[in-house]
């Protein structure tokens, strides 16, 4: 492994760019996600920012239960994101389906479609909770990431 590659992997933790996917959320989580961009929480101090194309993203933040019409979109956006990538399920619905867990039109949590690295539960999760989750992801806090993909992020 070359030096540049190592440096790149070190830099990965310091600059995580987020692409936000809404798979049918009630916009509660979306507003909370926007809140962490505001001066009060200011996610940019960790080098994070929201991007508008999955090609540029390192992290997919998925909010909302996966409804049937959006299944293909979720798969596509996962494919369109370059490796290494982390998938963050934001809110109760994305984690496990939330109150729509047995709805006829809802598949369930995001992890039924694509592998998820980080769950941030809450309805909606507070901005502090999102920050905490992301701090876990970048290694500022103790990690609770799925072991297989954690190796990818860590190394």
């Amino acid at each position: 492994m070359s030096l540049l590659k190592k440096l790149a992997q070190k830099a990965f933790k310091k600059s995580i760019w987020v692409f936000h996917v809404n798979t049918g959320a009630c916009n509660g989580c979306d507003i909370e996600l926007l809140d962490i961009l505001t001066p009060y929480y200011d996610i940019e101090r960790f080098g994070m920012k929201a991007v508008s194309s999955p090609r540029h993203a390192d992290a997919l933040v998925i909010s909302g239960p996966v409804t049937r019409p959006t299944v293909d979109f979720v798969r596509k956006v996962y494919e369109a994101t370059p490796e290494p990538k982390i998938v963050i399920a934001l809110g109760s619905c994305a984690t496990a389906g939330g109150i729509w867990f047995d709805s006829y039109n809802v598949i369930g949590g995001v992890d039924k479609i694509i592998p998820v690295n980080l769950y941030i539960p809450g309805c909606p999760p507070r901005p502090e909770a999102i920050l905490f989750g992301i701090a876990q992801a970048v290694g500022m806090s103790k990690k609770k990431i799925k072991p297989i993909i954690a190796a990818k992020v860590e190394s």
Binding site: L7, A8, A11, G47, D58, P82, E83
Partner: peptide
């Protein structure tokens, strides 16, 4: 607060390895 001053170096390095 804003990002650290070397943030853009990190960004470019990270993108190089992606």
């Amino acid at each position: 607060v804003g990002p650290p001053p070397l943030q853009s170096y990190y960004d470019i390095l990270k993108l190089m390895g992606k």
